[in-house]
Each structure stands twice: as structure tokens, then as C-alpha cells.
Amino acid sequence: MAEPAVWTRDLTKRFGDFTAVDRVSFEVRAGEIVGYLGPNGSGKTTTIRMLLGLLRPSAGEASVLGYDVRRETERIRARVGYMSQKFALYDELSAWENLTFYAGVYGVKDTAALQRAVDLVGLAQVKDERAAALPIGWRQRLALATAIVHRPTLLILDEPTSGVDPVARRAFWDLIYALADEGVTAFVTTHYMDEAEYCNRVGVMRRGRLLAMDTPTALKRMALPGLAWDVRAEPLLEALEVLEGAPGVLRAGLAGDHLRAITSRGVRASDLRRALRGRGLQVRLVAKVEPTLEDVFLALAAD
């Protein structure tokens, strides 16, 4: 697997004065599941659209499956499965009709291939229902099925789980893993911080810039400037105020019935206890915890 499935170098897209994607460089190796994490409007969709030749890059280079995104668009499109944010389904058509339509457009004649897609995503029971009548979890699966009818080697999924509940999301990721087992490379954007944990590697986007790309574990180790803590103290909201002002505390926030703090590396549990007790608060627990990708994101965004 010498050739990466996707690579970009200083890929840039400007709309007038606005730079939607700003000198982004990364690689997706064949067989990987790579996440592209960022809030709405951070440039995720624009990046994907450039990879698919839907938008012309303003600067920089990119290639998908060895083809240039500017010149060899049609070759890329024939080999890539794409699932756009809106789930491109025709509401008046049944699930099966949607599938046969996309199969026809891709020139797939073999109904066995369609059946395979149906079986894989588990659509058999809703095959004849109109797309409009399907709940969002099923629509999402159907959209995935339409994106894989032509057996693409690379899947590009733009916020595939947006608006889908946690249970359906979990099931959807199981499907992605099943496809990965068959050797499919997946490039998935998401704004769910917790969802990025499903990916082999994660790129963090903000305001058009790719801030970092690595495994979730490495990101937590490298990107976070300090330590993450769970703090339980009474009364909670006063404790939050104290923590926000304590020396060494970079960030503190409410985490339900307790507080979460990010501090610089030198800080010890006893420092935090002392600060809280000094203001007459009851301290129940101060424990070092594993940071989340949201902690990572906030740390990267602060630079």
C-alpha cells in the first residue's frame, strides 16, 4: 500500500475574502478510517467537495486514489462512494428504487450487488417503503447503501451521523467497521467530539485550518498542555468560581454533578484541594482523569 488513498498539499479554498480552507495538508492511507473533526463552518465540507471535484481549489494540490482532483475528476467519482450531509434520497421513491436508481447511474446492472448492499446495511425489512416515510436512522443506512452500490474503494462521508441518535450512531459505526474489514478506506467528517474516538486517526479542523491529525490517544497525549482533573466540592458553583481563579488552572467547567479542570503540568491534587479549602468549601474528590477530545480541541483552538 505505497500510494495513499488521499493526499493534499496546502489545499486552499477562498470564497471572496473568506478563506474556507486554509493550506491544509494531510494523508489518508489505504485501509484507514480517518476522522475530520470540527464544528459547523470549519471547512470540513469544503475540503470534501474539493476532493470530489465539486469545488475547484483556489490553491494547493490534492489527489484521490492517485488521480488529480482538478484534472481527473470523473475517474475519482467513479471509484469513490460519497454520502453527503443531507442524505441525497428521493422521497417519492422506495428504498429499493433509490438503490436501483443510483446503481443505474453508476452502471451497475447486477442485482446481486444491490442485494449485497441491502444485506450489509440491513435494509431488507424496509426495502419497499418510501424514503420519505423512513426514520432518520434508516435514511442514513439507505444513504450509505446508495453510496456503496458500485463497490468503491474509498468512502467519503460528510457528517453521516448528524442528527442521528446515539444508538443508531453506534450501529452505523459498526457498518463502517464492517466495510473497513473488506478493505474500504473511509474519510468521515463529524462535529461530534466523542464520535471521533471511533477513528484510527483524527484531524482537528477549526476556521479552515487543520490544527492536528493523529490517533485519538496521541492527540490527547501531545496536544493537551497539561493535566485533566475531576473535582467534587460543595457548593459546586462556588467551587467553580474558586477553581477558575486558582493558580495553574487553565480552564474549569461544569461537568454535571462535578467540575472538570485543565491545569498546567506542575499542578498537584493537593494544590487544588488547598485552594478550595482555603475558601471554606467542602472537598470530596480531586482525581486526575483521562482528557477527552473536546479538551484536546479546546487546547488546540487556544493557540
Binding site: 470530489l52 465539486l54 469513490v80 441525497a88 453508476y106 452502471g107 446508495t146
Partner: peptide
């Protein structure tokens, strides 16, 4: 849906 159609051959 047009976006999806565009990325087909």
C-alpha cells in the same frame, strides 16, 4: 440530491 448525482459518472 444534485450533489450526489454530480459525483456519479
Amino acid at each position: 440530491t444534485i450533489e450526489q448525482l454530480i459525483v456519479t459518472p
